[in-house]
Simulated assay, not measured.
Amino acid sequence: MSHSVAVPKPHAWLPAGAIMALAIDRVLSEVVQSWSLKWFASRAVRPLDALTAGPVPTGWEGQMLLLDRDLGLAVSGDATAILAGAMLDRDVPTDVQTDADRRVFVEMVRICLEDLCRRLAEAFRFDASARWERFPGDTASVPDGVLVCGLGIESHAPLMRFMVAPDTLVEMAKAGLPPPERGRPLAGIACGLAAQAVSVSAQIGRCSLTLADVAGLNIGDVLVFDRALDAPVDLVVNGAGPPLARCTIVQNDDRFDLMLLDSIGG
């Protein structure tokens, strides 16, 4: 009779860094959502994809905003008209705009993007004194290996590309950890060893013999110790180590007792 053995299915492990990436995507989504609710009537701007490695947008007819080269926002050339239209809740045709209209729209979008940059810097734990730098979209220098996410209105191509360096994510995750609990001081050694049982004995003296002498000992042989009969004896713990105190042997009926001559450890 043959027996079938059930083979367990392999676990679907998450790839390395997946949990952190999900957490950062959530932070970015919350920042963009709160910013969008403040500035836009009904055309919400939101992340269009998850944070992934590159490519960094180049050659955009727009601008690049960088914060210490670790946090970036690439803004396309079409973003001004589309974002201004989202703020006004109507389309803003570029072919009928006057110079005065364009100046108003540019200023509106500039203030709007500055608010987004401030929120991003705060969410990713940058110092409040850090300043964003503006570059033309085709000249900004962005470090390799950054993570990129498109931001835009669902019916449009990405209006902006959010970029963050991996080291920034690591520092953000570390900063979000709770502070370590302060350990309680260790109890005194005396408290820890108070219940430890030990053997206390008295050393009345010593003598030195060879192994041959020890092997040849017989009944009636006398060993001469190095201590006088009335000299104090040493009190030791577990038969070894330095003496704890000196004591003298006293007779108590048919038993020997030890009377301390000085304090323990004195």
Results as ranks from 00 to 15, higher is better:
F105T: 06
R161M: 08
A100Q: 14
V236P: 14
F225L: 15
C191L: 13
L177W: 02
W132T: 00
A140V: 06
L151H: 12
P143N: 15
L147F: 01
S141N: 15
L211D: 14
R103N: 02
G205Q: 10
F124T: 07
I219N: 03
V146G: 07
I153K: 04
S201R: 11
G145F: 03
A190Y: 01
E122L: 01
P179H: 13
W132M: 01
L120H: 06
A228C: 07
I153Q: 09
I153N: 11
G216E: 13
F124N: 05
A130G: 01
E107L: 05
L217K: 11
G183M: 09
R125P: 00
R184W: 03
L229P: 00
T168A: 14
V224E: 07
A128M: 00
M160I: 01
D138C: 00
A215F: 01
P185T: 07
L223V: 08
A202H: 01
V222E: 08
A231D: 14
L211R: 14
D115F: 02
A194F: 06
L147M: 08
M163Y: 05
A100W: 09
L147D: 10
H156W: 08
L217W: 03
R182G: 02
A197K: 15
A212I: 07
P166G: 07
Q203V: 09
R110N: 00
G150D: 02
M108Q: 14
D234R: 12
D230T: 12
V106A: 15
T139D: 04
A228H: 09
A128C: 04
P143I: 11
R134C: 00
S208Q: 15
P179D: 15
E133L: 10
S129H: 02
G192C: 07
G176W: 13
D138E: 13
L159H: 06
D230I: 03
R206A: 02
R125D: 04
P179Y: 08
W132R: 10
P136I: 02
H156G: 05
R102D: 02
I111H: 10
V109W: 07
D115K: 13
T168K: 12
H156S: 13
I111W: 07
